[in-house]
């Protein structure tokens, strides 16, 4: 009985969510926004590439495919994007790099949200000392130049994917905390929050059922926009040699290797990882922009055909 009960309730709330989404004006607006479609298509392309990387990439990432100099061959023939100075297939490496980029982006956003959102909710809802404490921590986090702090952290604890993500989240959570707090501050003044108190809801329930669901829209936007920023930051760190190490095919790290070669006329080892970064960042940014406009009722109003 109780299991059935639970299933029914969960089913109701999930289907309810989608029904609400389908009926919401945000969705109608989003459907009409070409940025959303371009962004969505690019994101699908990137995510699809990451998932099926093993099937798409014709060669292994570390296969030395060229036996004799020059190892770096221009695009064409068997190697559609050419080979790098170690004779490895650039196309395969760029494709496999998608995985790393998304992994960094998603893990980082998740970590930042997990730290930032609850802190922001508590600061905004309870106010007073809790707020003071969280906001001072936010100030501190935001006053550090993120990239330098991350570089220092990696210098201290060593490089690698995990350390890279932790290092970037040291400052990144603050944005989530601040936006969430601002949301909580305005939402808690709404009569429906007071009426929840008036029927005897506990603070915990008020935060989870009344404040968070109503403040989620900007958080989704922030998450969508943080993801490309994280990929860019990670690329920068990788470019400086502080992140993921060779021979892992991170796009930023690939650029580092290609830096000196451009002058020798070997442009393809630098161009294609760069293009991959641009496509990914652009896709998420388009989607994020469109979401922001769609979820902001003030921008949506009077948008008739």
């Amino acid at each position: 009985m109780s299991v059935v009960e639970k299933g029914r309730k969960v089913g109701l709330s999930i289907s309810g969510y989608f029904r609400k989404l389908a009926r919401s004006p945000a969705w109608t607006y989003l459907k009409r926004d070409e940025r959303a479609w371009i962004g969505f298509a690019l994101v699908i392309l990137v995510v699809g590439t990451a998932i099926f990387a093993d099937f798409i990439a014709p060669y292994g990432i570390n296969d030395r495919l060229i036996e004799e100099a020059p190892f770096a061959r221009p695009p064409g023939g068997a190697f559609i994007l050419g080979t790098d100075s170690q004779g490895r297939d650039v196309f395969s490496r760029v494709i496999q790099g998608t995985r790393i980029a998304l992994e960094i982006g998603l893990l980082l956003v998740a970590l930042e949200a997990v730290i930032g959102v609850p802190l922001g909710l508590m600061a905004g809802y309870y106010g007073g000392k809790v707020d003071e404490l969280v906001m001072r921590a936010v100030d501190v986090a935001l006053s550090f130049p993120g990239l330098v702090l991350a570089a220092a952290f990696i210098g201290f604890f060593g490089s690698g994917l995990n350390n890279l993500i932790i290092a970037l989240s040291l400052t990144g959570w603050a944005a989530f905390a601040r936006i969430t707090r601002a949301q909580a501050l305005t939402i808690k003044e709404q009569p429906y929050v007071e009426s929840a108190r008036a029927i005897g809801e506990k603070d915990r329930t008020i935060i989870s059922k009344y404040i968070l669901p109503n403040g989620i829209s900007p958080l989704i936007v922030i998450a969508t926009m943080t993801l490309p920023a994280a990929i860019l930051l990670a690329s920068a760190l990788n470019f400086m040699g502080l992140g993921v190490q060779e021979p892992t095919p991170a796009w930023g790290a690939m650029l580092t290797g290609a830096r000196s070669e451009v002058l020798d006329g070997i442009w393809w080892t630098a161009l294609f990882p760069g293009v991959a970064i641009i496509i990914t960042v652009l896709g998420f940014n388009f989607l994020g922009d469109a979401l922001r406009d769609a979820l902001d009722p003030r921008l949506r109003e009077y948008k008739y055909v």
């Binding site: 429906y192 009426s195 029927i199 005897g200 009344y210 669901p213």
Partner: peptide, 29 residues
């Protein structure tokens, strides 16, 4: 003590949680 008392507000659209189905709104108390 809250079950002994209640309040109705001026603006009905802002006194109901916009993300809750009416059924759940009524289920809560």
């Amino acid at each position: 003590l809250r079950r002994e008392m209640g309040i109705v507000y001026q603006h009905p659209q802002s006194s109901l949680n916009p993300r809750m189905l009416i059924e759940e709104t009524l289920r809560r108390p």
